[in-house]
């Protein structure tokens, strides 16, 4: 039982980390960043190349991957999202463009690396540490720790710093922010870079935990969106809550049911949340943060 809960928490941490970046972009940029999974998969593969082919250590390779993912995010912002925003694109338009980007990135990875899985494992496969009756590996501890650390830094950054205040201002209203002398476009770029860094971090950790395939980004995207919807998009608290809820539902849900319904349960949950939210749609604040 403890093992099931531990599994759920680890999975949830991964989803939460993804949802964190996703939510950041949503509240400032006002759209569903369906290509967030792109940073996830590119970061992971870049780390793979750096560690396995170039021979760098996991830490350095990981940093390289994070950097790569962040750069990709910046490129997406500058080449696609910013111009679309300038042309007054609608939310659906941005959604579709992001979806298109995701398709391109995933297939690009597939072209370069092929569809078969690659491994980013550096140590031998050993039983994990025993903790309160559950076994968890070092990488898994890392995932949970990173998630908490990222969430904490994000929260502190947004609430306590000047920059954070500016970001929240932009999230609240682009127009007003401009009036007050802030430059929304620069802020949005910064947010995108940070969010993509988080996204690729999630991908890299997942790569160490299991393995890498081109479709890992898409899967993470599905779960990340689920986590955001369930927990509430756009707040740090929401991302954490959503992520852990999805992780736990996924694992506890199949405690008694056949495991093949793992994913279906999550999506059913997402659908239900959306429908419930729809009722209170007009009353909820979608744009502002904590």
């Amino acid at each position: 039982m403890m093992q099931v809960i531990a599994n759920g928490i680890v999975a949830g941490a991964g989803y939460a980390l993804f949802a964190l970046g996703f939510g950041l972009v949503h509240s400032t940029g006002r759209f569903f960043h369906m290509a967030h999974g792109g940073s996830y998969v590119v970061g992971a593969y870049l780390t793979y190349v750096l560690v396995s082919k170039v021979g760098l250590s996991s830490l350095v390779g990981g940093c390289g991957g994070v950097l790569g993912g962040a750069v990709l995010g910046a490129m997406m912002e500058i080449a696609v999202f910013r111009p679309l925003r300038r042309r007054n694109a609608s939310r659906e338009g941005m959604f579709l463009a992001a979806l298109g980007l995701m398709v391109c990135i995933q297939n690009g990875v597939s072209l370069v690396f092929g569809d078969q899985p690659v491994v980013l494992r550096t140590a031998s496969v050993e039983p994990g540490m025993l903790f309160l009756g559950a076994r968890i590996t070092n990488v898994q501890v890392c995932i949970v720790a990173t998630c908490i650390a990222a969430a904490a830094s994000a929260w502190i950054g947004l609430q306590k710093t000047n920059l954070g205040m500016r970001i929240r201002a932009v999230a609240s209203s682009h127009e007003l922010a401009t009036v007050y002398g802030l430059r929304p476009e620069a802020i949005l770029l910064l947010v995108m870079v940070c969010a993509s860094a988080l996204g690729s971090l999630a991908g890299i950790l997942s790569g160490f935990d299991t393995d890498l395939t081109p479709s890992m980004g898409f899967y993470a995207q599905l779960m990340g969106v689920a986590a955001s919807i369930v927990g509430g998009i756009g707040s740090v608290r929401g991302s954490l809550l959503g992520g852990f809820m999805v992780g736990l539902v996924q694992h506890l849900g199949v405690w008694k049911l056949p495991t093949q319904w793992q994913e279906a349960i999550v999506f059913a949950l997402v659908a239900v949340c959306l429908c419930i939210r729809a009722r209170g749609f007009l009353r909820t604040n979608w744009g502002t943060k904590d």
């Binding site: 679309l84 694109a89 609608s90 659906e92 338009g93 579709l96 979806l99 298109g100 980007l101």
Partner: peptide, 15 residues
């Protein structure tokens, strides 16, 4: 994917 992005550029205001 590229075509999808291109179309959004051409019709940003809505579908």
């Amino acid at each position: 994917g590229l075509a999808l992005i291109a179309i959004v550029f051409l019709r940003p205001r809505g579908l």
